[in-house]
Write a protein that binds this DNA or RNA. Structure first.
Length: 617
DNA sequence: GTAGGGTTAG
């Protein structure tokens, strides 16, 4: 008789009798665990046909199954439609609330919570952790404090799960005093509760307090978990504490925590930031399971070590492998590498990728949006594409002062002094206050466009008009500008009279100007200063020997060279590079290793010829 | 039948 009522599905074969309530619930739990939505839906339909949807037990299991299978709308449907056939108990409410939290939807939790209270269903220790999380997720600190009050009323303030959630909630708002009070009043503390405190201290930058928690936790006889070590590693990374980072690496190995992806990711980051790229690579290579963090972190390691070519290579590999999609973190890590190498093709590729993936556009986090577009503008600017940079700038929905500074500096770098200054004036029109960086851009614009009078005016007005005290960088721009314009005496006067201490950079700029205009006396003064301030830097010796060379004082040239050897200063060979096709071609001084060497040098020679011809006519 | 921590960029 039963055989006609239901066709036994595959997953019931293991049961000796026909499915009952328990077997349905067990099967639904399995589907939830394996995120097997298809199977779960099948079960749902059998339950519907066979009249199993009137029990609060099956409703709860169904809601849970749909939530865990990321089908929250189905979970909601079950919850809403079942209200007519069976009254929702605390289990059903808890399941749908937990479902929303699992699917990162804090807002609807607050509505269901309200409904629950109106229906007179009593909250329990399962309800509170999720509701607390919802209030902090909705940035509702008042709501959080109210729920905390209710926790006391329900006598759940000593429950570890509830207590951890409250501590976590307060720490999210950086309310350390409130969090600490709850923490202190807990009769027992487990590793999760301690982790919350460690991460709370880490978040507000109190690193030593975070590390102190680790000591106390161990005194309490608690074993640090994988979660503890990732938190601690991030603290050690920020402190640049390689010694203790290595100790944690040892502990992690001993505990078998290296099988945890997040633990390894934190180790990669720690080694990378502590300038141990090889150790970071070792960890990365040894990982069986990797996630987007691992990729991003290893790209970050190369970016931070200044290996821009490898950074781009890894990005290409990521695109080719198609295992992980580059996200906003990947893109912000890779873009500066493009800027450094002036790798326009890569930069454009990333820009196109961002557009197709919608990265940096209508992002939930507006700061992200601004930041990423700033990085794109910077890339275009450094690659000499001011037109493209301007287009991005004009289309940005929110600009911060960095956005304006990047544009001004871009124009300045490429000699578009007037464009830089006009943007600077526009900045004033939209009531944005220029900062130190803006003024460096403005002065640099005057420098590169030869706007000597304007540059001098800006410098003298900085304090009175813009309330910015000129730094050595600002003076460097103006001294460089005066020097290039041949106004060596004025430059020297400013250099000697400026109220802040001159560094080697500003003296070197002055030295370069002396060389350009062949003033050996001032050059000697400048060179002594530079060598004094930075004896290991080769640039000043080279400039000085060039000055003597230009003036035909060859004995002194060899003196400088000898001095250089005595100080064991080596000239770092200069190099340039250009992106062509799918690779970046690097050329060192006197470098003849390029496969197309003959072609390149013959083209170079014909350029020299044309230059010579132009000069003659 | 239901619950709590972590890591990557500026």
């Amino acid at each position: 008789m039963y055989k006609t009522a239901i066709k036994t599905p595959n997953f019931f074969r293991s049961f000796s009798s026909l499915p009952n309530l328990t077997s349905y619930i067990t099967s639904l739990q399995l589907c939830a665990h394996n995120t097997n939505l298809r199977q779960g839906k099948k079960l749902h339909s059998y339950m519907l046909i066979n009249g199993f949807l009137t029990s609060p037990l099956t409703i709860t299991s169904l809601i849970n199954m749909y939530s865990k299978c990321n089908a929250i709308s189905d979970a909601v449907l079950v919850f809403n439609t079942s209200s007519s056939t069976c009254e929702h108990n605390v289990f059903a409410y808890n399941a749908i609330i937990a479902g929303f939290i699992f699917n990162h939807l804090p807002k609807p939790v607050l509505r269901v919570y309200e409904k629950m209270r109106l229906a007179g269903v009593m909250m329990d220790k399962f309800t509170f952790p999720c509701v607390i999380k919802a209030f902090s997720g909705c940035q509702d600190v008042v709501g959080l404090k109210n729920v905390h009050g209710l926790v006391f009323k329900f006598g759940l303030d000593h429950d570890l799960f509830v207590g951890s959630a409250v501590v976590h909630g307060y720490l999210k708002f950086e309310l350390m005093v409130d969090a600490h009070q709850v923490f202190d009043e807990m009769p027992d503390r487990d590793v999760v509760l301690w982790n919350a405190m460690i991460n709370g201290y880490a978040q507000i930058g109190e690193f030593d307090n975070a590390l102190d928690c680790l000591k106390k936790l161990r005194v309490d006889g608690i074993v640090p978990s994988r979660f503890t070590v990732t938190g601690i590693l991030s603290v050690l990374t920020l402190k640049g504490d390689l010694y203790n980072g290595k100790a944690i690496h040892g502990f992690v190995t001993k505990m078998g925590y290296l099988s945890g992806v997040a633990v390894c990711n934190a180790l990669i980051d720690m080694y990378g930031k502590c300038k141990c790229s090889l150790d970071a690579l070792d960890i990365f290579e040894g990982m069986v399971v990797k996630d987007i963090y691992s990729w991003n972190s290893i790209i970050g390691v190369h970016q931070q070590s200044g290996d821009h070519e490898e950074t781009l290579k890894l990005f290409d590999q990521m695109l080719r492998d198609k295992v992980f999609c580059p996200d906003i973190v990947t893109v912000t890590t890779v873009l500066p590498a493009c800027s450094h190498l002036a790798a326009l093709r890569h930069g454009k590729e990333i820009h196109a990728y961002m557009i197709t993936k919608g990265l940096g556009k209508e992002d939930e986090d507006r700061d992200n949006d601004t930041y990423i577009n700033n990085a794109i503008m910077d890339m275009y600017g450094k690659c000499g594409c001011m037109h493209e940079a301007r287009l991005v700038f004009e289309h940005m929905s929110s600009k911060d002062s960095a956005s304006w500074n990047i544009m001004i500096m871009g124009y300045a770098m490429h000699g578009f002094g007037n464009e830089a200054l006009s943007l600077f004036h526009k900045m004033g029109e939209v009531n944005l206050t220029p900062d130190e960086v803006t003024l460096v851009g403005v002065l640099s614009a005057c420098n590169h466009a030869g706007l000597v009078k304007e540059g001098q005016e800006f410098l003298s007005e900085m304090k009175s008009k813009y309330k910015i005290s000129p730094t050595v960088e600002h003076y460097t721009c103006v001294i460089d500008m005066l020097g290039r314009a041949g106004l060596l005496d004025q430059a020297y006067k400013l250099l000697s009279e400026m109220p802040i201490e001159a560094n080697s950079v500003v003296w070197r700029a002055f030295l370069a100007a002396c060389r350009l205009h062949g003033d050996a006396n001032l050059a000697e003064i400048a060179a002594r200063k530079v060598i004094d301030l930075e004896p290991e830097h080769c640039g000043s010796y080279v400039l000085m020997s060039n000055v003597y060379g230009t003036l035909g004082r060859y004995e002194e040239v060899s003196d400088v060279r000898l001095n250089m050897r005595q100080q064991s200063v080596k000239k770092t060979p200069g190099c340039s590079w250009i992106e062509f096709g799918d690779r970046v071609h690097v050329f060192g001084t006197g470098d003849r290793t390029h496969p197309d060497e003959d072609l390149i040098y013959s083209e170079l020679n014909s350029l020299y010829m044309s230059m010579g011809l132009c000069h003659m006519t």
